Computed example of a mutant assay.
Amino acid sequence: MDVTQWTGRHAAWLQDAFEDTQEEFAARLGVSLRSVASWRHSPDMVPQLETRRILNTAYERAGDAVRKRFIHYTRAHVERIQAQALRVAIAVVRRGDEVLLVCRQDGDDISWQFPAGIVKPGGSAAKVAVRETLDETGVHCMVRERLGERLHPVTRAICEYYVCDFVQGDAINGDASENAAVAWAPIKDLSRYIPTDRIYPPILNALEATV
């Protein structure tokens, strides 16, 4: 990969491909934690030449598994642009050591997920995440940070993820037509509700930082 192609988006994908936390990735590259955080929040930024060289070296020295994951992210991004896939905003709402979940019901299929809503063209994903959380669960929340986005490996929808702070409200099932239940789940027991391999890695990193 040519160094001139590196952007904040590519750097964040490389972090995900290594499955590193921000701290681990900063240590791996020998750059500041602030730089690593800025890449995820400013995906279109172009790092300085020396930083691009560092990223290029890290990629060249990475194992096959890391390279395959990185290539998957880049291809998925191209597919996302080409297909103009459905956009979904997902809210990861924290309250102390708990996270808000909804139990989706699709016929006999039941699965626990984070509150989510479809983003209409030109709409704000952050606002949708907050609004859908309130509509589905009765919980008022506010966005703390955007974690990133990915082309969902199963639904093929573009998913944008937001860590949100609990403001107020009792957790209730506000959409019985789609959801079987709503619950505050202990973060330490999250894998009992959602298999870890199905969770976007930055979500796990963000939640682990609160436990």
Results as ranks from 00 to 15, higher is better:
residue 1 M to Y: 05
residue 2 D to P: 07
residue 6 W to P: 05
residue 6 W to V: 01
residue 7 T to R: 04
residue 8 G to D: 09
residue 12 A to F: 07
residue 13 W to R: 11
residue 13 W to D: 14
residue 13 W to K: 03
residue 14 L to C: 07
residue 16 D to M: 13
residue 17 A to Y: 04
residue 20 D to Q: 02
residue 21 T to S: 14
residue 27 A to I: 04
residue 28 R to D: 09
residue 28 R to Y: 02
residue 28 R to S: 06
residue 30 G to T: 08
residue 31 V to Y: 00
residue 31 V to D: 05
residue 40 R to D: 09
residue 40 R to Y: 00
residue 42 S to Q: 14
residue 42 S to V: 14
residue 43 P to C: 04
residue 43 P to S: 13
residue 44 D to E: 15
residue 44 D to S: 09
residue 44 D to T: 08
residue 45 M to S: 13
residue 45 M to A: 10
residue 47 P to E: 06
residue 47 P to L: 10
residue 48 Q to K: 13
residue 49 L to F: 09
residue 51 T to L: 10
residue 51 T to M: 10
residue 52 R to P: 04
residue 52 R to F: 02
residue 53 R to E: 14
residue 53 R to W: 14
residue 55 L to H: 01
residue 57 T to M: 04
residue 57 T to Y: 05
residue 58 A to D: 11
residue 60 E to G: 08
residue 61 R to W: 08
residue 64 D to Q: 13
residue 65 A to N: 14
residue 65 A to Y: 03
residue 65 A to V: 11
residue 65 A to T: 13
residue 66 V to T: 13
residue 67 R to K: 15
residue 68 K to F: 07
residue 68 K to W: 07
residue 73 Y to T: 03
residue 73 Y to R: 11
residue 76 A to N: 15
residue 77 H to A: 12
residue 80 R to H: 12
residue 84 Q to K: 15
residue 86 L to R: 15
residue 88 V to T: 03
residue 88 V to D: 00
residue 89 A to R: 00
residue 90 I to A: 02
residue 91 A to G: 11
residue 92 V to K: 08
residue 92 V to D: 05
residue 93 V to E: 04
residue 97 D to R: 04
residue 99 V to E: 00
residue 99 V to D: 00
residue 100 L to Q: 02
residue 103 C to T: 08
residue 103 C to F: 05
residue 108 D to A: 11
residue 109 D to Y: 03
residue 112 W to R: 05
residue 117 G to K: 00
residue 120 K to R: 14
residue 120 K to Q: 07
residue 122 G to V: 02
residue 123 G to M: 02
residue 126 A to I: 02
residue 127 K to D: 13
residue 128 V to I: 15
residue 128 V to Y: 02
residue 130 V to W: 01
residue 130 V to C: 00
residue 130 V to H: 00
residue 135 D to Y: 04
residue 136 E to I: 15
residue 136 E to T: 04
residue 136 E to V: 11
residue 137 T to K: 03
residue 138 G to P: 05
residue 138 G to R: 01
residue 139 V to P: 00
residue 142 M to K: 15
residue 142 M to E: 15
residue 144 R to Q: 08
residue 147 L to V: 10
residue 149 E to N: 13
residue 149 E to Q: 13
residue 151 L to N: 02
residue 154 V to L: 13
residue 156 R to G: 00
residue 159 C to K: 10
residue 164 C to K: 00
residue 166 F to K: 06
residue 167 V to I: 10
residue 168 Q to T: 14
residue 171 A to K: 00
residue 176 A to G: 14
residue 177 S to A: 11
residue 177 S to C: 09
residue 180 A to M: 09
residue 182 V to K: 03
residue 182 V to G: 00
residue 183 A to G: 05
residue 183 A to K: 10
residue 184 W to K: 02
residue 186 P to T: 08
residue 187 I to Q: 09
residue 188 K to T: 12
residue 190 L to V: 08
residue 193 Y to H: 12
residue 194 I to E: 05
residue 195 P to K: 04
residue 195 P to E: 06
residue 197 D to N: 09
residue 198 R to T: 14
residue 198 R to S: 13
residue 199 I to A: 05
residue 202 P to C: 10
residue 202 P to T: 09
residue 205 N to M: 03
residue 205 N to K: 12
residue 207 L to Q: 04
residue 207 L to D: 01
residue 208 E to R: 14
residue 208 E to C: 11
residue 209 A to F: 06
residue 210 T to C: 12
residue 211 V to Q: 09
residue 211 V to F: 12
residue 211 V to G: 12
